[in-house]
Nucleic acid binder design. Sequence first.
DNA 1: ATCATGGTTTGGAACGTTCAAGTAGTCGGA
DNA 2: TCCGACTACTTGAACGTTCCAAACCATGAT
Lengths: 346, 346
Amino acid sequence: MRRPEPRSPAYAAGPPTLADVADLAGVSRQTVSNALNNPDLLRADTLERVQAAVAELGYTPNRAARNLRTRSSQLIGMRFVPGQEGTANAAMDRFVHSLVETSREAGYHVLLFAGHGTDALAGYDDLLRSTAVDAFVVTDTFLGNPQTTWLEDRGAPFVAFGRPWDQPEASHPWVDVDGAAGVAAATEHLLGHGHSRVAWIGWRKDSRIGEDRRSGWTRAMHAAGLSTSGLASRTEDTVASGRDAAAVLLDEAGATAFACASDTLAMGVLHTLAERGLVPGRDVAVIGFDDSQVAQVVPGGLTSVRQPLEQVAVEIVAALSGLLAHPPTSTPNVLLAPTLAVRASG
Amino acid sequence: MRRPEPRSPAYAAGPPTLADVADLAGVSRQTVSNALNNPDLLRADTLERVQAAVAELGYTPNRAARNLRTRSSQLIGMRFVPGQEGTANAAMDRFVHSLVETSREAGYHVLLFAGHGTDALAGYDDLLRSTAVDAFVVTDTFLGNPQTTWLEDRGAPFVAFGRPWDQPEASHPWVDVDGAAGVAAATEHLLGHGHSRVAWIGWRKDSRIGEDRRSGWTRAMHAAGLSTSGLASRTEDTVASGRDAAAVLLDEAGATAFACASDTLAMGVLHTLAERGLVPGRDVAVIGFDDSQVAQVVPGGLTSVRQPLEQVAVEIVAALSGLLAHPPTSTPNVLLAPTLAVRASG
DNA sequence: ATCATGGTTTGGAACGTTCAAGTAGTCGGA
DNA sequence: TCCGACTACTTGAACGTTCCAAACCATGAT
């Protein structure tokens, strides 16, 4: 007997433990443990007996005890950054769900935490030192974000969604989407539909992601023997900025099509077209980036570059599993190609 | 000495433990524990000494060990249901962030899990029996959803976002948004702008949430002495359904304004208006529900009922904290009033 | 001088699991 | 018959924390 007094059902408190199962099956605790973690070690009939006892009691291993002993939590931490109000970039939603789903298949759960700026590092630090999570998924790897460097310095296992743009010396695994290829495909799509004055509306120059996407546009334009001069605009990621930029490009550059760094900017273009009575897709073509819900439901529909977020999640979890394996195995960094969700606007 | 051999820095592995801090401060483990959890019990100078040692070593309590001993994980489980593709209802994003933020302030983290249908119950069951989470937040309390009943039967602590529509005997705490009041406010807003033919486009009759929102419309119409007959449509929550319903209501009921059960349906109305060259807000008024990103960035902007999700999160965490307190305290169920985000469409 | 008092501090045990080492039992070959 | 090697299972310890009961120590009252 494991306890001084066997608990009568009436006083039963808490879920059954390994020892309860062991008593019922007439084996030792360790054998039960092995039945769950290394079934190969048991004789067939013993295994069966233990499994029957497990089923009868409805036993599930206590997470805390297992975590303590194995020094792992089967948890993956991720800072949850919500889509900004007034923008169309709610890709997070889709990505998080894919990540949760894929992690489950690999035996992990996803733990969310918050915090902005330096506060964010505090969140990482806390979870790391209390050994609350086994690893992190880092999603915002934009310019000068100290997170990845900080985590690397600490030897914390993590996988980044996003390339280490500004850190040639970075050695952490990452998965990213080839934004340039996506925009190039979008631009080629527009060129293929007869447009030659394809304008670009993107973000300010200090955004590496923005510059990468822009490079897809220039590449496709130059490959078609077209000049890009006067056809590009760099601005804030807001609808109003997109609208203003579109007005200028229509008037001063004779643009007939737009490739945009985001759906938010593309929506700005649609504003301008609506104001002028121009029909998207017929008079002027527009392509956004992210295939947000906005792109999907806006009247007419907005053609948009769609990131393969489900696949990103799969690759990230694969990399994480490698990192956390014994011994750790490293996976190659992955750059995935986006697809084009074609709708009426382009 | 806690270990046979004190670890030299070169061989140091893993974060410092309570015993390390105790050694450094020259007190017992228990005193360090008290310094962290019940500082009042310590003499001022002892407390200071311990805190200095904690700071010097950068000690953070090991979560797994604490969880094991206290039988609590400081984790709140939530099934993550992503917004459907092709709809505009990405309210989840905002809610999750608020919940994460508020939970943190109360000392909890949010753990996500997936699973659909019966699979969902398996997710709850697993986390519950492995004592991986202290409580749940249940978000989809629609018709016939077995989750709440199942959890109640098992005595699992949880708070629902959503009323127990079909379970008068339900006794769990819940927080909800008064959809009827929101739609009533929307309808009154439209009436106040001179409309008398205000139509309703909602969901099928088996949606209790949909019927609740609809009742806000009828209430406001009747209060203004107006008939609702012929002015209502019940359909699927898709853009196409909203578009079709709007066409019918315009043609056959002479509707001049629309109140909708969702932004998705409202976007459908905008489709129809665009097809007919009607300007939202000038020719025909439209109000949606959820204040999604779509409503915010669509050209002209879509007026929409906005749920106070931040406050919902606060109330939910308050209820959870009560549930998990020793002894548990029950909080009253809360029904929050939404607001109207007014834009050009209405 | 002794004793109760109350504020501080301590040592041992316990939470439920897995690791490391060990003990039977079995089989085949010398 | 004995040994080595292998299989199947068991035992005690350990992970790092908090609970519990007991010990310590001033202080003032008896």
